[in-house]
Every structure is written in structure tokens, then in C-alpha cells.
């Protein structure tokens, strides 16, 4: 499971998650969803720190964030 997952069908491509991502690991996909928007996707999971700033800025609640369990 990816650290950040998107309900791509609900994304309206507003880009607020991308603008505020502190690690620049999100971007709009080339593809379109059925609403006609380019949905946001995670491009570099290695850079992602699971801070969930993207999810907190998302106006459409399309983002879920997980992190690795600490031992």
C-alpha cells in the first residue's frame, strides 16, 4: 500500500496538495478521470514523509495517508 492514496475519481485537480507538499513528491497525472480533471498522484514515494499536509489541504477529502509502523 502506498503512503498516500488518492480517490482519483473524486479529485478535481485543484493542485492545493501539490502546492503545499513540503517534499515536492506529488503532481497532476497525465490521464483524465471521468469528471475530466487531471487527478493528483504520488510521483516519488521515497521522498514522502507521510506528513499528511496534502490530506489536510484537500478540499475534496480524496487523500488517505499511512506511514510505516514504528517498532
Amino acid at each position: 500500500m502506498a503512503k498516500v492514496s488518492f480517490l482519483e475519481e473524486r479529485c478535481k485537480g485543484c493542485g492545493l496538495c501539490i502546492a503545499f507538499c513540503p517534499k515536492d513528491c506529488l503532481e497532476l497525472a497525465e490521464s483524465l478521470n471521468s469528471q475530466g480533471y487531471h487527478p493528483a498522484t504520488l510521483t516519488d514515494e521515497g521522498k514522502c514523509i507521510s506528513c499528511a499536509i496534502c490530506a489536510r489541504m484537500c478540499p475534496d477529502v480524496v487523500i488517505e495517508v499511512v506511514r510505516e509502523a514504528r517498532r
Binding site: K12, C51, A52, E64, V66, E68
Partner: peptide, 26 residues
């Protein structure tokens, strides 16, 4: 990733349906 912990997910107090708001609306 082996075991994962949820950092953020949709609150249960929101019905699971798309919103009518425009893109980027606060």
C-alpha cells in the same frame, strides 16, 4: 511496507459521496 499506521483518513462524520463544490473551493 510491512505494517502501516493510518495518518489521515476520511472522518466517519462525513457521508461518503462527491461534493458539488468547485475545484479548490475552501
Amino acid at each position: 511496507m510491512a505494517e502501516t499506521v493510518k495518518v489521515y483518513s476520511r472522518p466517519k462524520t462525513l457521508i461518503d459521496k462527491p461534493w458539488h463544490f468547485c475545484p479548490g473551493c475552501h
